[in-house]
Each structure stands twice: as structure tokens, then as C-alpha cells.
Design a protein around this nucleic acid. Sequence first.
DNA 1: TTCAATTGTTCAGAACTAGTGAACTATTGA
DNA 2: TCAATAGTTCACTAGTTCTGAACAATTGAA
Lengths: 103, 103
Amino acid sequence: MAPLFHPSREDITLAGVLSALADPMRLRIVKSLMQQNDCMSCIEAAPCPDIPKSTLSNHFRILREAGLIQTTKKGVEHRNVVREADINARFPKLLKTIVGYAE
Amino acid sequence: MAPLFHPSREDITLAGVLSALADPMRLRIVKSLMQQNDCMSCIEAAPCPDIPKSTLSNHFRILREAGLIQTTKKGVEHRNVVREADINARFPKLLKTIVGYAE
DNA sequence: TTCAATTGTTCAGAACTAGTGAACTATTGA
DNA sequence: TCAATAGTTCACTAGTTCTGAACAATTGAA
């Protein structure tokens, strides 16, 4: 399987971050990942259980390619964590401000 | 002609604001409107002169419907201004943080 | 080893959205 | 009355998103 793509810190763009977070489901995923202070599988981080997994997989790909999350394979599941340091280095306070308004 | 639609302050959503600002052209429009401290016509606020006017009109509609700008007719042109007070009331610091990172 | 269960990706088609030229409306000034 | 200007609306095309189905990888049990 092709390795999962993650942009380097410098390649994280404002437009990419904003459009990734503009989707309510993705914003809730990021919020729960940040609250967890730990890695979560895609299913654990999903905001509700009845989302088709192809849809969920797509949302995680968008978050990953925007540079918002880091995904590593661990056994059968993918562990996800928010790249807070990278986002904060690039756009200080942006992530906290936006996620703070997430329901 | 139908009057231009503007959402009330309470109807401004985070997702609407983020997806409106996720487009680089719209973000630049908002930034130049904020720097101007005055109303601007659509053409004045456009980031470059060769944008088709239907495209420009569409971007202004999206900004308007997201609650980011207030548009009023004045003679032959439309004067636009950012609804800073409304956005700040709804999502304090959000606008300034995002626009601060606009190129 | 083999098989089933679990987690997630990829593919393809349907539904939706965005960009744009052309036609249109409204206002102004000559 | 006519031309010029500023925007909107329409229709078409191109591209994106959502989703079910098929697939791949890992694990644990028989």
C-alpha cells in the first residue's frame, strides 16, 4: 500500500487549513483529537457512528493532506494525532481560535 | 431586482465564515476591504483586474451570504464593507486572526 | 497454516458545486 | 433617448464530494 502523504510544515497553507476546518464533521474530528491528548483511530474520532467509512476515510485524507493531522499505522488501525506544533508554528493561535468555536 | 440577502448576526455560522475565507481570492477581498476602512465597489476590491465579473459577483455573493460583508446599492455600483462588529460579536478574534495571515 | 474479523483505502458513478461567457437589469450622464 | 458602467442571472462545462462495493493489510483464533 502506498504510504500516507503528509505535507512538511512549510507546505501547510492557510487556505488548506481553512477549507479542511470549514467542514463541520472535520472540525469535530479535530476537536475530539485535541481533547483526547492521545492518538485515536479513525472510528474513535468520528463524530457519529453511522458515517460511511469511505466518507470518513476521505475526511481523514483531507485533514492529513492539509497538514492538520499525522497518521501512523498501528496494527490494523491508523492512529491519528493533531499536528498542533506544526500548525502553531505556521499560524500561531489560528487552530485554538477556530477549534474554540467548534460545537 | 430582488434585494440582496444578508443573514442576521445570529445566523452567521463558523462553517460559513471559514469556507468563505478558505478561498484565497475572497480572503484578499476581505483583507483589502478591512484595510480600506471605507466602502469599496466590487471592482475596487477585486484582487486583480482580469477576473470575469460573473466570477467576482459570485465571490461577493458568497461573502455576503456568509455574513462577512454588507452590500448597499449606491447609484450604479454596490458599496461593500466588512461586518466586523457582527463577526467579532459572534466569533471574537477569529476574523483578525485569519486575515492577519492573508498574504 | 488457514480463516474470519477488523480497519481503512481505492474505485466508479451519481449528485452537487464553482467558474465563466452571454444576456440581462439598473443607474447615470451626455 | 442613447451609450456607458456596475453587477446579476442564466446555462453550460469542469471539477469536486459522497457513497456503496470491492479490495488490501493486520490480527487472533482454530
